[in-house]
């Protein structure tokens, strides 16, 4: 379970999040919606431990994020992240990009996940040698490889056509069915069809 308690955030003098408190239960598919500049990405970054809030506290599985001793291992083992622009490392091939994120005992999952996502034949290609949709599937594979408890996705279909968007959503929905909590920040209202909880942020 993720619990946000009185979370606020500022960029310089500008406040983007105002005293937010809410809970996300395990196995939820949460859709964070809102206009540009409403703070969706900022909230997602805070929930995923990638950004410290200016004030307030975040609890994951009952533990305050500030008190987690090894935040790197926590991120690697418990959290998967899908970025809007995939953010693959350009000098590593598809397999190596996923292996970079994988825990030692999860590396055996890589080929299986690549096969499930239909990109096994791309494993030796570099990010600049595959299409945008394929890159986003690689990013999804990277997020899934450690079988995390929570997946965060920031505009995961922002750079994809509708066909590839549907593939990504259905893959995220499959993860929810397996018990993973998924939190997606997006403009794309299609995601409402998959979401079990929606939080709308206002500018």
């Amino acid at each position: 379970m993720i619990q946000a308690s009185h979370v606020s955030h500022f960029y310089g003098a500008e406040q983007v999040l105002f005293d937010l408190s809410f809970e996300i239960k395990n196995g939820e598919f949460l859709f964070l919606s809102g206009e540009s500049g409403s703070g969706k990405s900022t909230l997602l970054s805070i929930l995923s431990t990638l950004l410290k809030p200016s004030s307030g506290e975040l609890f994951i599985e009952g533990e305050s994020v500030l008190e987690i001793k090894n935040i790197d291992y926590f991120r690697q083992s418990k959290i998967g992240f899908v970025f809007q622009f995939h953010y693959l490392i350009n000098y590593l091939n598809v397999y190596e990009n996923i292996a970079l994120a994988a825990l030692e005992d999860k590396k055996q999952n890589i080929n299986k996940i690549l096969e499930e996502l239909g990109i096994l034949e791309l494993s030796s290609r570099y990010p600049n040698e595959i299409s945008g949709g394929q890159r986003q599937r690689v990013a999804l594979a990277r997020a899934l490889v450690n079988e995390p408890k929570i997946i965060f996705a920031d505009e995961p279909t922002g750079s994809l056509d509708s066909k590839n968007s549907k593939i990504v959503y259905s893959l995220l929905a499959q993860a929810v069915q397996k018990g993973t909590t998924v939190v997606v920040a997006s403009h794309d209202m299609q995601i409402e069809n998959y979401a079990t909880q929606i939080i709308r942020l206002k500018d």
Binding site: S48, F74, R75, Y87, I89
Partner: peptide
């Protein structure tokens, strides 16, 4: 920096 940020987001240590 972007690359290092991605690595840190993936759980890679400093």
């Amino acid at each position: 920096k972007e690359e290092f940020g991605i690595m840190r987001a993936l759980g890679k240590s400093r």
